[in-house]
Simulated scan of single mutants.
Amino acid sequence: MKDRNILITGGLGFIGSHIANSLMDDNSITIIDNLTSGRLDYIDNPNHDNLTLIQNDLNGLDLTATLKDIDYVFHLAAMVSVPLSVENPIRCHEENVTATVNLLNACVKNDIEKIVFSSSSAVYGENTNMPLKESEIPMPSSPYAASKASCELYLKSFHESYGLNYTALRYFNVFGPKQDKNSPYAAVIPNFINAILENREPVIYGDGEQTRDFVYVGDVARANINAAESDYNGIVNVASGKRITINELYEIVKKTLNADVDVRYLPKRPGDIEHSHADISNMKRINLEIDTTDFEKQLVETINWFRQDLK
């Protein structure tokens, strides 16, 4: 992708910053971020001539004016915490659903070429039809998951009603450098790493036999760019297609860090799902393949970033 005008909501965050860094040298990038969880130092060159930063909430902007001359929109800004959504569902709806509908309306008014939406595997809930296919009926078990499922429906409706092109990417458990260790969203890997590096006792919620399908943030950034350039309108799982228990994951992290620390088990949190495993056959629609043999190498890269960040 070159010489395009791109808007990234949540562009200073974990995933959004990776997308921005990948595209900034060859495109004009506008980032909207309220800095709730994003950090300016996640951008490789925050003074880049191609970067415009708007520090604000989506609901606090005239989005129709903001999107003037924009070609592509990557929409990542959202409340991403399941526990917080359970605690405050109204705020979750406003930040996730209302903001998205406002953004979609502005996209239509500005004749945007395509919007790529960051959804979540949380929409599947406790569906046991593994591996999970995009055709499954959503079974959200938290307001956060319900908000993502609602946004997917709005995307489809805006495509049918106004011809707005879109791809909704259902991320499974994303990990990698720049992940917020304090975020409750898919945060098990940074929590393990930071607990060990800080000589604290790592925590597992539940018995640790719940399974997750992990995917590296670099692959997720690539999925977004591929989706924007594809002609596919619809939903795509973004995952490795493999699953691992939290207990197994901890043993790998512990071994990688050469640590000997016992884990502490706490009760399962409301809204957390038990098992997650993606059918990834739809990724071919956006020309995406993921090399699953790189998991431990990616884990080392993640650990090295957290080591440096702690300094």
Rank of each mutant, 00 (worst) to 15 (best):
F158S: 02
Y72R: 03
L58Y: 09
I112T: 01
I137G: 11
N102F: 01
F158G: 08
S119K: 11
C107K: 01
S135W: 00
N127I: 14
L84C: 00
P89R: 09
L155S: 06
E134R: 01
K133Q: 13
S120C: 07
A106S: 09
V82Y: 07
F117V: 05
L84P: 04
T167W: 13
E126I: 01
C151Y: 07
S120L: 10
A168I: 05
A106P: 04
P83R: 01
S135H: 00
T98D: 09
H75M: 00
F117L: 10
T64F: 11
L104D: 06
L76N: 14
Y124D: 00
L164H: 08
T167V: 12
S85M: 07
N102I: 09
S85P: 04
K109Q: 15
L164F: 13
L84Q: 07
L164K: 04
H75E: 06
S85K: 07
I112N: 03
C92Q: 05
N96S: 07
S135Q: 10
E87Q: 12
M139C: 14
A146W: 02
A78R: 08
K109W: 08
Y171L: 14
E126D: 11
E126F: 00
E113H: 13
T167E: 10
V101W: 10
L63T: 04
P131H: 14
A145T: 05
V116F: 04
S161H: 13
V73Q: 10
Y162D: 10
V123R: 00
A106Y: 09
N105S: 15
D71V: 08
S121F: 15
F74C: 09
L104K: 03
D71M: 10
L164V: 12
E152K: 00
D57A: 15
A77K: 06
P138Q: 09
A106W: 08
L63P: 00
N127H: 11
Y124T: 03
S157A: 14
S118P: 08
S147F: 02
F117T: 03
V108M: 10
I137N: 15
C151R: 05
A99C: 12
I137A: 14
Y124P: 03
P131G: 07
P131I: 07
S121P: 08
F117E: 03
V82E: 06
S150D: 10
N165L: 15
